[in-house]
Design a protein around this nucleic acid. Sequence first.
DNA 1: CATGAATGAGGTTTCATTCAT
DNA 2: TATGAATGAAACCTCATTCAT
Lengths: 214, 214, 214, 214
Amino acid sequence: MSKKVQRNPRKSPTQARSIATVEVILEATIQVLITQGITYLTCARVAERAGVSVGSIYQYFPNKQALLIAVLNRHLDHVADVIEAVCEEQRGKSLDSIGLAVTSAFVAVKMLRPEVSRALYGLPSDEVTDSIVARTTGRSQLAISKLLSTCADARFNELGLVTSIFTGSLIGPVQLMVTGAIPIERVETFTHHLTQLSIGYLRQVSTPYSSGTE
Amino acid sequence: MSKKVQRNPRKSPTQARSIATVEVILEATIQVLITQGITYLTCARVAERAGVSVGSIYQYFPNKQALLIAVLNRHLDHVADVIEAVCEEQRGKSLDSIGLAVTSAFVAVKMLRPEVSRALYGLPSDEVTDSIVARTTGRSQLAISKLLSTCADARFNELGLVTSIFTGSLIGPVQLMVTGAIPIERVETFTHHLTQLSIGYLRQVSTPYSSGTE
Amino acid sequence: MSKKVQRNPRKSPTQARSIATVEVILEATIQVLITQGITYLTCARVAERAGVSVGSIYQYFPNKQALLIAVLNRHLDHVADVIEAVCEEQRGKSLDSIGLAVTSAFVAVKMLRPEVSRALYGLPSDEVTDSIVARTTGRSQLAISKLLSTCADARFNELGLVTSIFTGSLIGPVQLMVTGAIPIERVETFTHHLTQLSIGYLRQVSTPYSSGTE
Amino acid sequence: MSKKVQRNPRKSPTQARSIATVEVILEATIQVLITQGITYLTCARVAERAGVSVGSIYQYFPNKQALLIAVLNRHLDHVADVIEAVCEEQRGKSLDSIGLAVTSAFVAVKMLRPEVSRALYGLPSDEVTDSIVARTTGRSQLAISKLLSTCADARFNELGLVTSIFTGSLIGPVQLMVTGAIPIERVETFTHHLTQLSIGYLRQVSTPYSSGTE
DNA sequence: CATGAATGAGGTTTCATTCAT
DNA sequence: TATGAATGAAACCTCATTCAT
């Protein structure tokens, strides 16, 4: 962890066995993170959980941090992928439609494997993790920002700030849910409220607009 | 060195010095956290920064974890104190007043020393830190929940969920600001937007109500 | 060994206990080197031999290589010290006197603890050890070079080359003796021969010279 | 891939290829030694440099140490071969002729590939390498010793010691040259001086002798 | 009480060697 | 035979914690 920061996997896994091993290692990392926490995330434990030897970890990852980076990248890239997809799909739709779609998508993707989301939220921040978060958050915000500017029935000043607050406002509540502070059975109501939160906000900070007729 | 021949001090000087030392150590912990990050938070570094010996840390704290606990408790308790105070002050006021006051107070207290807030957000979560966060979040939510039920012009169903989402929705954006993702110079506009976010939400999920007529 | 090359001891040992510990560690390093060889020179073994814990080694040496560097520096600096001293003492003397004195001094200092000399000759060369050898060899050669130019009864062209070959010619035979290839009981005869070797050479490559009268 | 259908090769091609592979591996070992040093001499690096797989190394060498042994043996055996040859050729010649021939031969063979000589000088000594050095040095010394006893114009007491010092005195200066401490451009002058060194010595420790008269 | 030297468990990482394909 | 993925023993190094001074 740290000092010599190297980010690339040592060997690009070309063979089938290699790919499987990498997969197994990454999943084991997540499982250790979920069940024991970052404090107990050691190479030995990951290897044991993965059913491989420590050496195999180092065949594919230059150091322990690289494992975390890989896991985090995967998860957050997936989130950004989903957000980008929904943004693409919502181009030119109404404010209400956009608010609902983005909010639902975000909740859904984070609740797909809530323990994973939770474990990754709990990671200690450092320069590397921060930069990954910044990169993927950037992707989402860019997509959302572009989407908002295509909104059929609203125009936004302060587009950057609005996007930040919009996305930011989803994070906190979702964090409360993945950590169990809000009971998971209430996802439906929760999502409904969150949608109202975002739509309410977007309405407040936009000027209504009718594209064609008026 | 010399025999301790000191009588009748107002406060036991020992104790006064102790308190000062504890203070120095805690502040050093925060500084190391801010400047080097949790990865580099070692007892030796804290001692050096504090200008005391490692041994002295163990005079006042049973172990390293206790340092973090103390720092986190202090910070979050302070936040909860501020929230409780504002809740007390806002009893019976209007929804708009409450939304504005709570939001502003939260932003203000987190932005008092943004680097500290940032450093503490970045702490790895484990059972201990989670329980501290839960406890202090609980305090705030309880106060807010009670406050909302005194609101002069609105009534809330789902009070628990509303409180959770209300407070949760503040956390994300504030995190973006303390991490610098939203420029700090824009606190004013930011607070304004955040207020609109919360008030907008609270309106959506409440039923209007006029205390007088009925 | 290698990569992060750091050369300074972490802590300058000020207290008596510290100095003693450093001494014990250095001597243990030499002993392990002598009895087991560089292949088996591990921090654990040094610590065990020194009767301290591994941690104590790292209190005073940033890494394993630093241990070797310290030991090598000490030994070679001592050799250079001795050579410099004898050179000082021989200023202006005759070629025969100089040849005898320098040769004897070199043999004597290397044979003081032949096992140590042997162990250090056997160290794998790398950039760091090479630079230490270069530095201390440089000291000796500079001193000898200056000395030769004060010789009462001879003048040298090619002073640099002569100095190199003169000193170089001592190294090989001495190495044979410290490694046991030449029996140690024969030091006397050995030194005598070596003296003849050097004096013979110096005569061949110098022009006789009488300082005053002629 | 395709079935091996190859019949009646002159030499078993397998064997021919084997020999080539061994050669490639040994040369790769030398190259890694020269360019990276013993610290970085790993089987993986040798394999990469040789353009074969790690497994192939183990096809031909039982372990890593065997690689080094093979390389060292080859080099030092070649040196001994050359010395033996020159000794054979010089039988019965004069002291001057012998001194010149042996010295020149030694310098020449070590300077054939100075980087190789240098790299091998830098090997850490252990029982195995020491025994190889001892064996090959022994061969040279035996040859030289026999040669000296055939010298046309000189007789030596202490033949063993003289041989040791004679050969030993060549090693040091040559080491200075292969390491670059003496500039390589000066080989000519260097060899001349070294010859004077050895001849001078041999004269000093011998009694002149004229084969004819008695 | 304060100090900081000493400890050693535990984590990270390397790499010679094996073996299924 | 050749390959290179997998192994795991063993080395390095850190740092929370203790304790003699």
